[in-house]
Every structure is written in structure tokens, then in C-alpha cells.
Computed example of a mutant assay.
Amino acid sequence: MDQQFMTVNGVVPKYSEKPKKFKGLNFKRWQHKILFFLTTMNLAYIVKEEAPKSNENPMMKETVMAIEAWNHYEFCYRNYILNSLDDNLYDIYSMCKTANELWESLEKKYKIDDASSNKFVISKFLKYTMMASKSVISRVEEIQKLIYELHSKGWEINEHFQVKVIIEKLPTS
């Protein structure tokens, strides 16, 4: 159970920086960063594996050590996540008793928020109208920002479709 550091030519790689505190926005990005950080700390397996259990009476020394190690790593994992949350979120999620419960609670809440955010960006893009009072260049830049926002949310838009939308959105004048 004891996690060993992986070495390359006998050198232990440096750990990544701890991600900035999660404030409730861009969950998917934060989730990837915190998973990478926890992987470099040899803790990411905690949410992927089951805790060791003992069915034996009396427990063997190795089993007791494995359970103690698991509990230690699970404690570290839970607290790394909690400490990477903004103080307001920390207060809410510190009630979770295990790392798995904490991780699943965050996913349940913020993946739904990300989905509604995607819906909002798509709606903004579809309803966008160009104002005749602005220059053509600034109007095209506005729609390109919306397209970039869609790309950043994982929505791929065909280039021909983008051009047709921009042309359609141009005022008739």
C-alpha cells in the first residue's frame, strides 16, 4: 500500500504547484488541475480504489498497517481538496466525512453548474445581434469572443458555420 516515488535516472521529479483556490467557477479546469496535483502527491488513487477491509479475526499486522496507511492517505486527500477550496466553500464541504463523499458532492454540484453555463453561452451566441452603431470590426470581434467562449467550454463549431453565422448577423445596411 505504501506509495513509492517514481524516479527517472534516480532523480525524484519536482511536484507541480498547488492549484489556486476553487471559488465556484470553472470547475472542470480546477478539477483537472487538482487531480494532476494529487497524482504528483501519489494520492489520486484514493477516489479510484476501495479502502482495504479485514475479514480476519484477529487481523494480521500487514492488514492493520494497510488500513492505517489508507486512512492516512485518505485524510491527506480530503484535506488537500478542502484546503484548495475558497473559505466559503470550505465551510460547506468540510461536513463531508470522506474524500469520496467530498469529491462526489463537488462533482454533483459543479458539473450541473457547468452544464447550465454552457447552455447560457450557446444561448448568447444564437441570440447575438450586431448593433449598427458599432464598427464592423468590433462586431466581428464580439462574435469571435462568443465563439472562443464556446470552444473553451468544449463546443466545436465548424469554420464554415462560423462564417455563415457572422454574415447572417451583419446588419442589412
Rank of each mutant, 00 (worst) to 15 (best):
E74W: 09
M65K: 13
L43F: 05
Y93Q: 07
M95E: 10
L25M: 08
V47P: 07
L146M: 13
N158E: 14
E74P: 10
S138K: 15
Y148C: 10
A51K: 11
S94W: 01
W155Q: 04
E50M: 07
I143H: 02
S173E: 01
K18C: 14
W155G: 00
G24C: 11
N100D: 01
E168C: 10
Q162N: 08
H72S: 08
T7Q: 11
T129H: 13
S54F: 07
S16Y: 03
K109T: 14
K145P: 02
D114T: 04
K169H: 01
L89C: 10
P171T: 02
T98E: 00
K124N: 14
D91G: 09
S152Y: 02
Y77P: 05
L25S: 12
A69K: 13
W30P: 03
E68G: 00
Y110L: 06
A69D: 09
E141L: 09
I167H: 03
W155Y: 11
L43W: 05
V8Q: 06
I34E: 04
S135V: 12
Y110E: 07
F27S: 01
Y80A: 05
V163R: 11
R78P: 03
L146D: 09
Q4L: 12
S116K: 15
V47Y: 04
L126M: 10
V47R: 06
N9K: 12
H72E: 06
Y93K: 05
I157N: 07
E168M: 12
S54M: 09
Y148Q: 12
I166E: 03
P52W: 05
K48E: 11
K21M: 11
F22D: 06
S16R: 07
L146I: 12
I67Q: 08
S138I: 15
Y128H: 10
M59N: 04
E156T: 15
K153V: 03
V64M: 01
Q31F: 04
A44S: 12
K28E: 00
Y45P: 07
E49Q: 09
M60P: 05
K20M: 10
V11R: 07
K111T: 12
